[in-house]
């Protein structure tokens, strides 16, 4: 019984906002029975030393992610568009504030 139950505690991903003005950042995962318990566990596990002012928990199986390779064809469209970067454009040094 306990073996089955243990597997019924799903995995949650934890995101912490370190201080106001910053984004929430992924810090790790934990197991909990539900979202409320996940929040409490996340507080105890990931913010024991004032590391956060806000926490998000998300069921791991609710997260959709891009393909396994970190740099695959999915990101190819942005690879050849150098004109999206400011350094692509040459402006004479004499022109100020640009």
């Amino acid at each position: 019984m306990s073996e089955e139950i243990r597997h019924e505690w799903p995995l949650f991903e934890v995101f912490v906002r370190a201080k106001r003005g910053l984004n929430h950042v992924h810090v790790g995962s934990l197991r909990a029975a539900d979202h409320e318990m996940a929040l409490h566990h996340a507080r105890d596990l990931y913010t024991r030393r004032n590391e956060g002012v806000s926490i998000w928990v998300v069921r791991s199986d609710d997260v959709v992610s891009s393909g396994p390779a970190e740099k695959d064809a999915f990101f190819a469209p942005s690879g050849d568009k150098v004109y999206r970067h400011p350094t692509y454009y040459s402006i004479p040094d004499s022109v100020p504030h640009i």
Partner: peptide, 20 residues
């Protein structure tokens, strides 16, 4: 092995099969 489709750092069973 977990059947869950997991994200972030997690690797799904399907992806693992592909990698294999």
């Amino acid at each position: 092995m977990s059947e869950q489709t997991t994200a972030g750092d997690q690797m799904t069973a399907v992806e693992r099969t592909t990698a294999g």
